[in-house]
Design a protein around this nucleic acid. Structure first.
Lengths: 347, 347
DNA sequence: GCCTTAAGAGAAAACCTTTTCCCAGCTTAA
DNA sequence: TTAAGCTGGGAAAAGGTTTTCTCTTAAGGC
């Protein structure tokens, strides 16, 4: 009796279409049509049913809808990057693109475990996801799962795709060009490159772009220094570069922001001013690092959020039945100017 | 004809129980019972049906099962911590606890937007999640959503709970005790505390524990220095501490690892050796930072993965109908010794 | 030989929604 | 008056699974 006024019965069973129909004195068929703007009925009938549904707090059961439509408005996101430097912005973009279409995302971390991967993929398929997005922490490595010949469309984002699949990756050569061209534009002449291990494909792509730009600008090319992706390696590299017998560089293009941070710290310890004496540019634009260096680090952003959004939208259109050509789509990077390279000479 | 040998028909419609039943020459009811170890039938019949299911690659449609059981083996994870320093390890633990029970996780980032929050919660409820876990980036802030009086159980992890809800948080006082006691044990006498802004509840909890431990050990208490959670503040704080007229500290308990990094860098720039002259301890155990400081940073780990696992398991038991007492459960922290505090004196 | 019991298997309802088809009643035109 | 057309609405099937109930047949006990 007291609860008669409550708009939504709290803690009670969900109200079904049947309840609405009974309350409005029509059949479930009519109720369904009223709520979905289908079928023919008088405006009064339609409005009365709608009002009843509102009053009862009716929400259609997605499970039943999905079963019927054979479409769950759900996608699976597979990753092996638990502490996601890369996959997190990616997810953010993906999620962004999907929520607007009422699609929810199952997030699964498969680590490096094929068994876990298969488990998750099977679970997703059983739950009738509309599609799957695979993402990882490295462009040049596969996830430990086989996603070929699935019954649903698959998109790869920032991870190694199967042949004939659709993939989105950042354009590392483009990013490296942006970086080195920026240094050239600012008038630096002897530009060194300190980067990660040779086992990473991006190391080679960026190194080649680095060489190309230097040649195009008539500047001397020195061999990239390969090491690890760490601050410590940035430190060491400065010793190589500035203690060696060869001519000292006046700028350093770093393979990631952590290396750049190591380089900047080492330069400061040597009494060299950044950007007064030496220009430094990073890669990744990891804000937590780039904004903590002194001075703040100019860096290359891989636009991972945008990349994720593209991946999400493409998956959606695939699910909608629109075909898309297989292949790897490289998305451009973006230069983020802070203070570590100095100001334009024409300023 | 050629495809007769294929174990799983690729790219075809999913095989249903009806298909299995037809192929095995029994009714769907019998087929269901055979596969679920229910009902009575001859061992041969059961095995024949099973074999048929295997051969056809049958996988039950979760949507249909969920509809019937009113249980979807799905939970929602709500967060507002997109670039998840804290919520990511948490998720890892949650996911860990749940996958073993065949439960998938919907991940939703609600940012700070109540509208987005409501959207996601409604979507989850429509999809009949078994329960919801709310997590965030601050223990003392609510998510921008109202999760009271939902039809499903809710657990809060590392975020401000509703009254009478179940919540898991890290025990910040415990963590601070561990840190300061560690410094005391190593023989440091004048221990300063540099931490974040007063608007954070954890700042006060940790500061109080800091004072308590110093008093217990008969050491002088100085007022904590409140600032921001940044490296830059760590730098500044060292100036305050070492340029002031008051006696200089010989150890610093920092509110997070970034502050600690700023402190260590500033000390080095002053020619002070860590841990020779000054001991430094951090909080959070953010490995990317803690391992890059020179020397590597001793820190307090909040055990977020374990916290997430607890949250996941508790939600599961709630879903299973076992009641649990409301309230906030504080989980202990863990000391991670690296090199920034020096070695035990008795070593 | 008759009754009881149990085994083995199927029919049908249930979960909830959507959609197709159909029906009854009314209006209009021939 | 009858055929045709339209209108408002309902019945029923579909989606895939689980579970309860019912039915048939065979075996066992007397």
């Amino acid at each position: 009796m007291a609860s008669d006024d409550l708009p939504v019965p709290v803690f009670s069973k969900p109200v079904t279409l049947r309840d609405v129909a009974a309350e409005a004195g029509v059949s479930v068929a009519t109720a369904s049509k009223a709520l979905n703007d289908q079928g023919r009925m008088t405006a009064e009938t339609r409005e009365r049913i709608r009002e009843t549904a509102r009053r009862l707090g009716f929400r259609p059961n997605s499970l039943a809808q999905s079963l019927l439509r054979r479409r769950s408005f759900t996608v699976g996101l597979l990753t092996n990057d638990t502490y996601g430097r890369f996959s997190l912005p990616l997810m953010s973009g993906i999620s962004d693109a999907l929520v607007d279409n009422g699609v929810s995302v199952f997030l699964c971390n498969v680590e490096e475990d094929p068994r876990l991967g298969q488990l998750h993929v099977d679970a997703m398929l059983d739950k009738r996801v509309d599609g799957i997005i695979a993402t990882g922490k490295r462009i040049d490595r596969h996830l430990p799962v086989d996603l070929s010949n699935l019954r649903v469309p698959v998109i790869y984002a920032f991870t190694q795709p199967d042949p004939d699949a659709i993939a989105f990756v950042s354009d590392d050569a483009d990013g490296a060009r942006l970086a080195v061209e920026h240094l050239c534009r600012l008038g630096w002449k002897r530009i060194a490159h300190v980067t990660g291990p040779a086992s990473f494909a991006v190391v080679h792509a960026r190194a080649q772009a680095y060489r190309d730009v230097l040649v195009e600008n008539g500047l001397p090319v020195t061999e990239p220094l390969l090491g690890s992706w760490s601050e410590a390696w940035g430190h060491q590299a400065v010793a190589h570069l500035f203690d060696g017998k060869s001519e000292r560089p006046d700028a350093v293009f770093c393979g990631n922001d952590q290396i750049a941070r190591g380089v900047i710290d080492a330069l400061r310890e040597r009494g060299l001013n950044v950007p007064g004496d030496v220009g430094v540019i990073g890669f990744d634009n990891w804000e937590i690092v780039a904004e903590a260096t002194r001075p703040p680090l100019t860096s290359i952003d891989m636009n991972l959020v945008a990349l994720g959004r593209e991946a999400g939208l493409t998956l959606l259109s695939l699910v909608g039945g629109k075909p898309a050509a297989p292949g790897i789509r490289k998305l451009p990077c973006r230069l983020v100017v802070r203070q570590s390279c100095g100001h334009p000479l024409d300023g």
